[in-house]
């Protein structure tokens, strides 16, 4: 492979790696699975990289490949360990030491999101990344109206999980 291409890819990936970390965090439980998915996404991004011409931002381009890998290509199922065993402590260093209550709430939110299915997680991820419905619909290949309806249902579902 072209060495220069590899160099620029590695640099851009390193600078944008948090996108992948965030996806791994939503789709996996535990450190090993996190690393495993991170690696698979990296490989898939690298495979698709020759087609990246810099028309869009690296991050925008990476969303699609990374989500597709997590939802479709990645084979190891995370379902069996998705609920209670998720250990947030080693992945999530406390940002705000003072606001314990908010931190607890965020932890519960993560646990709730972990109970969603893969497609719902993708919608949540794009929502959290502040993407509009146009981009959500294009990324997943569903209509904007349906993306909006689904997002509202997810919010209701999360509320039910959090307040049973």
């Amino acid at each position: 492979m072209d060495q220069q291409l590899e160099q620029s890819f590695v640099k851009q990936l390193k600078d944008n790696q948090n996108i992948i970390h965030k996806i791994c965090r939503l789709y996996t439980s535990g450190e090993d699975a996190h690393k495993d998915l991170f690696q698979e996404i990296t490989i898939q991004l690298w495979k698709a990289y020759p087609k990246f011409r810099g028309e869009s931002k690296f991050s925008t381009w990476a969303y699609r490949v990374a989500l597709n890998t997590a939802i479709t290509l990645y084979r190891k199922s995370t379902r069996s360990v998705q609920t209670s065993s998720f250990d947030t402590s080693n992945l999530f260093v406390r940002q705000d030491e003072y606001n314990y209550e908010e931190e607890e709430q965020i932890k519960l939110m993560y646990e709730a999101v972990h109970q969603l299915n893969d497609i719902e997680k993708a919608l949540v991820f794009l929502y959290l990344e502040d993407k509009d419905y146009e981009e959500i619909s294009e990324t997943l290949g569903i209509s904007q109206v349906n993306a909006r309806v689904k997002m509202n249902r997810i919010k209701t579902k999360l509320r039910k999980i959090l307040n049973p």
Binding site: N18, K22, F92, Q95, D96, E102, Q105, I106, M109, Y110, A112, V113, V124, Y127, L128, E129, D130, K155, L158, R159, L162
Partner: peptide, 12 residues
Amino acid sequence: ELDVLKKAWKNQ
């Protein structure tokens, strides 16, 4: 609830 996460999302 989701917006609480959204706020924290950027800072993580």
